[in-house]
Amino acid sequence: MITFSSTKPLKPPSSFPPFLHSVPPSASFRFPPIPSIRNPPSRLRILSLDAAQTFDYETQFKSQYLKSNALKIAVVGFGNFGQFLSKTILRHGHTVLPHSRSDYSLAAADLGLTFFHDLNDLCEQHPEVVLLSTSILSTEKVLAKFPFQRLRRNTLFVDVLSVKEFPRSLMVKYLPEEFDILCTHPMFGPESGKGSWAGLPFVFDKVRVGNDPYRVSRCNKFLSIFEKEGCRMVEMSCAEHDRYAAGSQFVTHTMGRVLEKFGLQSSPINTKGYETLMNLVKNTAGDSFDLYYGLFMYNKNALEQLQKLDMAFESLKKDLFGHLHHVYRNQLFGASVEKPVLYLEQKLLTNGTIPVEAPSIEICREER
């Protein structure tokens, strides 16, 4: 609704029927089309724009709907990733209760949140969902000291760790049987997901969710946060996730850290491929080494992938030195040589270098 103010009083056009000037408020009728005003009032000024009134039921119903669908979510581990998730959770109208070992009270205040230094105080707020965003290495320590007795008996626990079988076994071990368990992994972070989550994979496994309609609805409400953000929702078992993640996430982090140690630097003639490698280093080096170590330590498939990477690199070196030896052989004996110098070739492929004890050219010719 827009209210106008003018220096000249506005009068109804003379063409209006006389009865319109004395219509009781309760009357119901259709107004005829308002004729155009030839001389509009000068210096119009807007006094109010769509002011909410006490009878604005649309706004009231919307507010009640949002409150009825809101979850009270405790974020345990309010570091970089915990804050990253909390911003989106808040945007969907849910309540966030942050806690961490380190003091993130200023970061919480920036989001309009109250930071809980004591885990007991947090649990007494009776959150419906406890979101574990701790590091992989500290998860067991957190669960072992968690004051479960201060929570509601069927609280939903959700983890967002990069490995899945490890936290699954810990939650089954430490959580009371009445508690629900949802293992998830948003396969993106503050760097890769800072623009949009649309199309990014979100893996989840409903390890233990009660059949009660409230508990089913609560779990679905939490998952809907990522659905509404456009994530590609992938439901799979924790074991299956770890098998795939070892071949994708662990390998990605390994290559990023190798290139970081290599000292990859920008140049005036960067190619698209080189820029991709630099972005890989940026995305992986920003994570703590504890995360990378956790990917290796608590995913039984990671060691196998590391060995495969090592074997692939050695195989590539042998291919390179093998072709190099072919060039040397042609330079020494000419392109018409029918048989390779087996001794020299075998040594080169085995050691990756030209052996010092290689026979002289004359000896090779005699053997030929």
Rank of each mutant, 00 (worst) to 15 (best):
H323T: 02
S267H: 05
S26M: 03
V327N: 06
A27K: 12
F202V: 06
S267P: 00
H99W: 10
F333G: 02
F321M: 12
A198F: 11
H92G: 02
I73S: 08
S28M: 09
E260T: 03
F204L: 10
L291V: 10
G247I: 00
E165R: 00
K282Y: 14
I361Q: 11
I269P: 01
S42V: 02
M311F: 03
E177Q: 08
E240F: 02
F250M: 01
S26N: 10
E338G: 06
E314A: 07
V234W: 01
P17F: 14
Y104T: 14
V341R: 02
E227I: 08
G193I: 11
T88V: 09
Y244P: 00
R45P: 01
T114A: 12
N69H: 13
T3N: 03
S169A: 15
P13V: 07
P35T: 07
G230T: 09
S5W: 08
G195F: 08
R38K: 08
P176Q: 02
E366G: 04
H117Q: 05
T254Y: 02
Y104K: 11
K62P: 12
A285P: 09
L344A: 15
Q83G: 08
F81T: 12
R329H: 15
V209P: 04
S169M: 11
A51N: 15
S86D: 06
L349F: 11
V337R: 02
N283H: 12
N80C: 13
L71F: 05
S26R: 06
R91N: 13
A198H: 04
A144C: 08
E140S: 14
K339H: 09
S6R: 14
I34A: 07
M1E: 15
L10N: 07
K221T: 03
F333W: 13
V142I: 14
R168K: 09
R243Q: 11
F262T: 10
I46T: 14
K228Q: 03
F222D: 09
V258R: 00
Y328F: 13
K228W: 03
P9T: 07
K300F: 11
H325Q: 14
D56E: 07
L324A: 15
R38Q: 11
T350H: 13
M233Q: 12
L264S: 11
L111K: 05
I181K: 01
N39C: 08
L137R: 01
S15P: 03
P359I: 12
M255I: 12
V251T: 01
V158S: 01
S315N: 14
D159G: 00
L111A: 13
A302I: 00
E177L: 15
L71P: 15
Q60H: 09
S217N: 13
Q249T: 10
R368P: 04
S36A: 14
G82N: 05
T114V: 14
L47F: 02
A335Y: 06
R208K: 14
P9V: 05
L306T: 00
G334P: 09
N279H: 13
